[in-house]
Design a protein around this nucleic acid. Structure first.
Lengths: 193, 193
DNA sequence: CCTAGATCGAACCGATCGGTACGATCTCAG
DNA sequence: CTGAGATCGTACCGATCGGTTCGATCTAGG
């Protein structure tokens, strides 16, 4: 039996569709910025269906954050992989990719950080920490390949630049934040060997 | 007539007391994390009094953010002023002060950025932008006094470090974020002359 | 063809939301 | 002492919240 077939009733597909639509809507409006009823209307699904798949609004939020974190960090990892062998090029690729993201219409900062900023429950905070750890792993890897004396420390500094650029781009103006963070990152990288 | 006298009924004092208490509570719980009724209970004031002084919950939030932004940026400006004439010392003083803040119990990141992260109304976004501009002015001034070739650009990079360190300290772990950002900032400052 | 189950739409639940109204109490200025 | 107004406590308002329930409809596997 194939995993899924056609355009028919298929719980897995329904779940995925809810997840994708909810990701966009909750990012746009904020987690507390729309109720479950309005969410279901915009998704085009009944409340019963949503609750059967995700149990609660918090459950949906959790799934949304996790999927978004994986997609985002995976996207950055691809940018690094496509940048060749030079760690400096890889690092520049990270910030160039971020710059693309910042310039996309509807950019509102990091969804995980936004969620953690005002939604204090355990699960959201844990998801945000996992997300930042994914970033940190990527950046520490670049630092290590560049032969930094303190790859862990440099990785943390690069993480600070990534998150800082995202916050500044979201709340102070997109223009140049990614490029400025990239230039700063390259200076730090060069100075750390 | 003195501005205010004694421990009696005094609208200005009442307003200030509400503002101070609400600042702490809304920072701790998040703007949407507590209702007006609960807020009034914890402050020790009636809803009518709160509404007479601030008009609406949004009005209170606005006043809270503005006062907090002024206090915070004023505190950093004092740290700079107390650091002597060397721009590098002044810059280090900024991040050392931030580190003190991060380590204080109850630290939850920047209140303005947290508010803007999920509360999309015009007034909150404007307050956050003003707040970041205050930071930017302070940092650009240091960059200029250090003789940077591009003080504005360096100022923006330093702002990215400040906000990045705040986000990382809040959501990924306090340890070392301020010191790492400070070291990065000093490298950038040294490389920019 | 028939049934198990996925989905819909709408009604419904108690709780809470932001905000208002009102009478009682208290403080101060004149 | 009196009156203006600041404050309190509480009740109240309509709206919305997250979540549940139920009958009707539709689909797909046997």
């Amino acid at each position: 039996m194939p995993v899924a077939q056609g355009t028919t009733i298929d719980p897995a597909r329904t779940r995925a569709a809810i997840l994708e639509a909810a990701t966009a809507i909750l990012y746009e409006r904020g987690i507390d910025g729309i109720g479950v009823a309005g969410l279901c209307t915009r998704i085009g699904v009944s409340k019963e269906t949503l609750y059967r798949h995700f149990g609660s609004k918090d459950g949906l939020v959790q799934a949304v954050l996790e999927s978004r974190s994986e997609r985002l960090s995976g996207w950055l990892a691809e940018a690094v992989a496509a940048a060749g062998d030079d760690p400096a090029d890889q690092l520049a690729a990270v910030f160039n990719a971020l710059g693309e993201w910042y310039d996309r219409p509807g950019f509102r900062g990091c969804a995980m950080v936004n969620a953690a900023a005002q939604h204090h429950d355990e699960a959201v905070l844990a998801a945000t920490e996992r997300h930042l750890n994914r970033y940190l792993d990527l950046l520490t890897g670049i630092a290590a390949r560049a032969g930094a004396v303190d790859p862990a420390g440099l990785g943390q500094q690069l993480l600070i630049l990534v998150e800082g650029a995202t916050v500044v781009a979201a709340h102070h103006g997109t223009a140049g934040a990614a490029a400025q963070a990239r230039d700063a990152a390259l200076v730090l990288l060069a100075a750390s060997a």
